[in-house]
Simulated scan of single mutants.
Amino acid sequence: MSQPNVLKENLAESARVVAERIGERKPEAGMILGSGLGPLAEQIEDAVYVPFGEVPHMKTSTATSHVGRFVCGNLGGKCVLAMQGRLHGYEGNTAQEVAYPVWLMHGLGIGTLVTTNAAGAINEGYRVGDFCIMEDHINLTGRNPVAGLEPDGIAFRFFSMLDAYDPELRRLAHEVADDLRIRVQEGVYLGLLGPSFETPAEIRAFRSWGADTVAMSVCEEVIAARHVGMRVLGMSLVSNMACGIEGASPTDEEVLDVAKDREADFARLVTGIVERL
């Protein structure tokens, strides 16, 4: 007799609960709103709120500014399911626990994921306050949510990460930014476990590897999304220069202050992208 797939069963139960809470709504896109970027969820109309803690088998957020709830409603003329805050490895969550809400979104029929975060700029051509579309990533968390037996029961464990960040969605994001006259970059994102910020020596190494931005999230989410065939758009707010660049010594307060300053343009940009999905 085959062993039960606990992960698959848990996801099915979670999806049933969320589906019951959101009623007749059929979200077309999933969104993850990172550090300081959660206020966008307040612009979602006809919203239903589902705290992470009320979803069976799902962890809750403990990070600063991460409200820790799903918000389902209308944004840019589309039905979306947004995570107002995310789960991080540095909070003590396993890679599968970080990935869990992404697999949950897929279980609700969502095929497109927009994941956002605040990141430090390694590329010295970037400026604080820029938005950076993710072209690719380097996963230095040391973890992969698909490792183990149970994720193979959700989807085949071996899959390509070529164009993990969908080229068509990236082009769309650039078009919207151009129309709105919002400055955007495009580059390679490097993800770490955290929670300590990086050392200057690490930043010099990461630059030599081709990384343009660095932060403590995203990679495990994107791996999980690609595992089940979701299209992904990733975008960072450059909230600080990385440690040692121009004498920078990042702080959490700096990250949140910059996010507050760029809140309006972030909302315009993401809403414009969602409108054209």
Rank of each mutant, 00 (worst) to 15 (best):
L162N: 13
M134K: 01
N123S: 14
T141N: 08
W103G: 07
G153I: 09
A164S: 15
G142Y: 08
L113H: 04
A118K: 01
V146G: 02
S160T: 15
I110A: 04
A121D: 07
G109P: 00
D130M: 04
L113M: 12
V114D: 04
D136L: 07
T116W: 04
T112E: 06
G107D: 01
Y165A: 00
G107Q: 06
C132Q: 03
A99V: 06
L140S: 06
D163F: 07
N123M: 11
T116A: 10
A164M: 11
P101A: 11
R127K: 15
I122W: 01
R127I: 09
I154K: 00
I154N: 05
G129C: 07
V114L: 15
F156E: 15
M161N: 12
E135T: 12
D152W: 01
G142T: 09
C132E: 00
T116C: 10
R127N: 14
V128S: 04
G129R: 00
A147N: 14
A164L: 10
Y165L: 06
D130I: 05
N117D: 10
T112S: 11
M134V: 12
G148H: 10
D130V: 02
P145A: 05
G153P: 09
N117T: 08
M105A: 07
V128A: 07
S160R: 13
G142M: 09
A99N: 05
A155C: 15
M161H: 11
L108K: 12
G120T: 10
P151R: 01
D152A: 15
L140W: 06
A118R: 02
N123R: 12
E135W: 08
V98M: 05
A164Q: 08
L149W: 13
A121T: 05
I122Y: 02
D152S: 14
L108D: 10
G111Q: 13
S160L: 13
G129T: 00
A121G: 10
H106E: 08
V114K: 02
L108T: 12
P145Q: 02
F158L: 12
M161S: 13
G148K: 08
D163C: 11
L113T: 00
D136F: 07
G125L: 13
Y126F: 15
G107R: 06
V146L: 01
F156V: 13
I154S: 07
S160P: 09
A147K: 12
F159V: 07
F159M: 09
E124W: 12
A121V: 07
T141P: 03
N144L: 01
F159R: 00
L162G: 12
D152R: 07
G111Y: 05
P101D: 06
M134D: 06
R157S: 10
I122A: 03
Y100Q: 02
T115W: 01
D136M: 07
R127E: 14
T141H: 03
A155D: 10
L113K: 07
L113C: 08
N139G: 10
F131R: 03
G120Y: 02
M105R: 04
E150W: 07
G125A: 14
A118N: 06
E135Q: 14
V98Q: 01
V102A: 03
P145Y: 03
A99I: 05
V114H: 01
I154Q: 02
D152T: 10
N123G: 10
I122R: 02
G148P: 02
A147I: 13
S160W: 11
F156T: 13
H137T: 06
M105P: 00
G111A: 15
A118S: 15
N117L: 05
Y126C: 06
